[in-house]
Every structure is written in C-alpha cells, then in structure tokens.
Design a protein around this nucleic acid. Sequence first.
RNA 1: GUGGGUGUAGCCCAGAGGACUAAGGCGUCAGGUUGUGGCCCUGAAGAUCGAGGGUUCAAAUCCCUCCACCCACCCCA
Length: 415
Amino acid sequence: MYQAPRGTTDILPEEQPYWRFVESVIAEVTRLYGYQRIDSPTFEETGLFTRSVGEGTDLVDKEMYTFDDKGGKSMTLRPEGTASVCRAYIQHGMANLPQPVKLYYITPVFRYERPQAGRFRQHHQFGCECFGEDDPAIDAEVIDLAWRFYKTLGLKNINLNLNSIGCKECRPAYLKILQDYYRQHINNLCADCKTRLEKNPLRLLDCKQESCQHIADKAPRSVDALCPACAGHFDKLQKYLKALDIPYIINNRLVRGLDYYTRTIFEVQPEEEGSQSALGGGGRYDGLIEQLGGKPTPALGFGLGIERIILNIKKENVKIPTPSPPAAFIAYLGDAAQVNALKLAADLRQAGIGVVSAGGAKSLKAQLRQANTLGVCYTIIIGEDEVKAGTATLRNMSDATQKTVALNEVLSHLK
RNA sequence: GUGGGUGUAGCCCAGAGGACUAAGGCGUCAGGUUGUGGCCCUGAAGAUCGAGGGUUCAAAUCCCUCCACCCACCCCA
C-alpha cells in the first residue's frame, strides 16, 4: 500500500476548517497593511538558495531537496520563502515600482529533516516581504503585522523575541569579540560549540547544552557592538514598538539560522516552550537583493509556519468557524421521482442553495439518516404521490414539521 | 545524521508466561412490516495482528532485518 512520503501529510476534510480560518486571517491582515500576494515556483535553481541562505547553514548543507532536471541543471525544492520572492523582485524590475514593495505568500516549503512533533519535510509558510525601505518604522510595521496576525487568530500565550545583529560594517568586529570571549572558555564548551566557534560563531549563543548556558548568558552582546547607525536603528524600532503597544522581549541570544539577516531579527514563540516551538521568525536582510544581482535595496520580512500555528490554535482551544452544511437534502423514491429530484437540485443550485441528494435506490429511512448526518435544515421528499401531484414534501429537520408545496415553489420556501 | 518508544479493522483500543474461529467501543451499512432522521434495539461488512524472514507441531504473542509513526538531540517554521 502506498502512503504519503515520510514527513508529509494529507490535510483531510476535518482539518480544512483550520486552514480556511488561517487563510482568511492572512487575507484580512495583509489587506490591512497593503500587501499583495505573490506565488512563485515550487522549485528554483539550486544556486539561488545556496547563495542567499548561505553555504555552511544546516538548511543548505543537509536539508535541501536537490535534484538534477533532465537538462542537467541542479534544482531545489524551496526550503524557505524569501529567496524566491527576492528573485522575483529583481527579475521583474520591481525596483521601478513605488517603494516599498510589499508582498506576501502562502507556500509549501521542503526540508529533508527527521520528522517529529511540529516538524515536517513539507510544511507551509505564510510570509511577508517588504522591499526598498530601511526606516525602522517599517520594521515596526512588519512586526506589528505578524503580531496582529497571531492576535487575530486568537493566540494569547505567545512571546515576541527581538534582537539586532548589526550590519556588514559592525558585525565582523562583534564576531571577533564573541570568538575571543568563547576562546577563553573553550575547555568548557560542548563539542558542537567548539565547531561553531570557528564555523558559525553567532550560533554559539543559541546552544541549549546545560554546560554552555552560563557561558552564553555572559557572552558579549551584539547590541553592545552595533555601529552608530545600527544602534540608532534599533533604538528607534523599540520606540516604535512601544508606541504600538507590542510587548517584546529583548533576547540577546536570539540568532537565526540563515546567513542573510542584518540588524533586526525576531522570532515568535509560544510561552510554553517545547522543542520545536518557533511559530515564526524573520528580520531584515539589507544585503540580500544586491547579493542576488539587484541594486542595493534594504528589505525585511518573515516566515510563519502554518502547521505549528494550527497546533497552537488547538492547544489554546481557539474557536474557529465551522463550515455550514448544504441547506437541503433531496430524498426521492422511484425513477420518476429521481428525475424531478435531479431537476429540482439543479434549480436550487442555480439559485445559490446548496443541495445534496443520494444516488441509487435507497430507502427513505436511509436517505433521511443521511440528511440528518449532513446536518441540513430541510429535507425535500419526492415520492410517487408527489410526482403525480407535481409537488414536493418539505421537511424541517429541526422541528420535524413538514408541508406539501408545489415543485416550482420549493425555492421560495427555502429562501 | 544520533538516541529512546510504539506499530492489532476507517478511528480508539483488549489480547503479549505461544493454541484465536483475534474481543470491545466509535464510525459505516442494513433492518426494527407497507414512504420519514436524530434516541434505542438487532444484524452485517470490515484485520493476510506494519512488512519480510526465522524458532516451533503451533506465533498477534519469542528472535532477526527492514519500514513507518511518536519523542528527544541537531536544526528550524
């Protein structure tokens, strides 16, 4: 028997209301901020990701679904959302549009990982990207958008973590300070951190090993090493967030797993931290567009994991809208009645009324049972008597009353 | 990639000191007299007991190998 590939799932009908709900909130919130939707291909040339996300990151080094197409080109199933949108921004000359350009997407992303709670090989992200503006007010607005999204969904127990990791001017100096500090403690570091020290020093701060905790806690902070421009940017951002009443937590140990981030980074976590807890994250990536061949363009954005969001919607018992059943069920008895039923169903649908009917020759009892399970308000019964008289019996399912009406008047009774 | 746990009908699960024709609940379907749902009653369908191999007269129950899922690490959404 075939089954869905490891780490992938079918989103079954009973799950769909959650997805519809999330999608409706996305549509509403992005509208409020003037974001326009963009859909880009599910796969891209591999180089786009290795160049933007960065070689040396886990995402690129061991998690990408990469394959050669029949022309021998290396292609990769999208492992994150930002790179494609940046590529599209450059390719379509969006730098010539009024800036900032604000785009959002809902898309599957693929990572070859070992699946576990809240982690899949295919998951879905809602993301926003804003190009062409470096004012920290736009950082505040983007964070405000993400925050409003979570709040509109009804999630209460979440935290916003914030940090600034500087720019290409000030980060190298900070990394040096960080490495110098860690070298003093090198004998007490876990094996992973010893590697990180040389390979990816920022990630040292993110280590969860008990033994590394107090070292990381006292490590030099990136916010203390910012150049004046970055420091000013970060100060203003915080001022704006306060003005917007967005409760944030400065987390000096927050770093992100993709190389392109500069200055502002943020992450949203549930209060009760599990292991796979991040609900979403993002930040500024002022150098990325240029790096991908565009002209220097400040930009920022975020990606939020829809599966994890739904997990938390369930955890917090958020009430979501349930889809309404069809308004009517048509039960029939006999061949002649079936024709009338078919015709009536078509007429009602033409008038915008949802109708379900059984096929075959089932007993009336069975048909009513089905109507009951569906939860329809009315069942329309057409038997031999009704066929002769040109009528239908209209049964109200909630109070079990029924009346006989002419076939061509059924519609007006349902309205 | 590493470590631990689990794997019985569509779903939840009993059975695990070898003998099962594998039990129950939910759900599904059909009936409970002639054309009427929800409750109730009755019945039926539905399981090569994750897959493959081995031990044995006999294995869902013991052993091995795979696979999948769950949990943790790594990393992330």
